[in-house]
């Protein structure tokens, strides 16, 4: 590359950066509203606006923390999210790998059945009856199982689409060394799926973390409730206390945001690891 094209491309790059930062205001502005509102008092918090709080009320966070039983919620959410996400990833990677490589009639039928799962709705009553029959209704384990089944189709399809881009010659080399089945999967395929796995991990963690429908139906005790349900302690039909809702929004979203901050670095290292082979 010559010097001038290099200079031109770095100029273009900074231009792209500037444009992206300006556009990011569309995202940052509403978030700024939320954060500012979370520090306001009741009178100011009646509406969401960009004004600077006249009185700073950090105590909103304390109120949310105590009234929303945040600590218990965080622990429950961590437990459910980590187990469900781990199961989803493992199950999906296995399915995506075997079904893509087999490419037979049976595997096609199975894949089609899995596609149906993108459409199949959660049906409360039959699910509750099923869980009661299995003797696990009301437990976190039941919730984790249902989450796994619900989110598995998307991640399986995602894994399948990535396995397709991995040349089959990779497998051949390992097979020659005597690897097959689980060994092949664990040693060769799984490391190559690192980038999509991290992405899938983030997405699933986020979906499970944010879901509030399933726990409402499947957990029968507030002590087992997950974090997002805490928002219902702060707004009613007749009354929106925006300062508390905002503080709650910040608290509930913080863990997943931190996860993404760490996770996305991981995606990059995943990329370089994947790029060694080819």
């Amino acid at each position: 590359m010559t010097g001038s094209t290099k200079a031109r491309s770095s100029l273009a790059l900074s231009l792209v950066g500037i444009v992206l930062w300006i556009l990011s205001l569309l995202i940052l502005l509403p978030l700024a509203l939320v954060i500012l509102t979370s520090f306001k008092n009741l009178q100011e918090g009646a509406t969401l606006n960009l004004s600077w709080p006249q009185v700073f009320v950090p105590a909103n966070y304390l109120t949310v923390f105590v009234d929303g039983k945040i600590l218990g919620g965080v622990l429950n959410s961590l437990l459910v999210t980590s187990f469900a996400t781990a199961l989803i990833l493992l199950c999906s990677a296995l399915l995506g790998f075997v079904l893509t490589r087999r490419a037979s009639r049976t595997s096609n039928v199975m894949m089609t059945l899995i596609t149906l799962g993108l459409v199949a709705p959660f049906t409360a009553l039959p699910t509750i009856l099923l869980l009661k029959t299995l003797g696990i209704f009301g437990t976190h384990a039941a919730l984790i199982a249902v989450y796994t089944a619900m989110f598995l189709p998307f991640t399986t399809m995602m894994m399948a689409s990535f396995v397709k881009t991995l040349p089959q010659e990779l497998d051949q080399a390992a097979i020659v060394d005597g690897a097959s089945g689980p060994v092949l999967f664990w040693r060769i395929i799984l490391p190559l799926l690192q980038a999509p796995l991290v992405t899938a991990f983030l997405l699933n963690a986020m979906w499970v973390w944010n879901d509030f429908m399933l726990p409402l139906y499947l957990l029968t005790s507030a002590e087992k409730w997950t974090l997002p349900l805490s928002v219902f302690s702060f707004f009613g039909k007749y009354n929106h206390s925006w300062q508390l809702i905002s503080a709650n929004m910040v608290i509930v979203s913080a863990p997943v945001t931190i996860l993404y901050l760490f996770g996305q670095r991981f995606i990059i290292s995943g990329m370089t690891a994947g790029a060694v082979k080819g």
């Binding site: 059945l113 899995i114 799962g117 049906t123 039959p126 249902v146 796994t148 619900m150």
Partner: peptide
């Protein structure tokens, strides 16, 4: 199995 039992069956 997890998929069939916990999603497809109740649906």
């Amino acid at each position: 199995g997890i998929y069939l039992v916990f999603l497809i069956l109740p649906s």
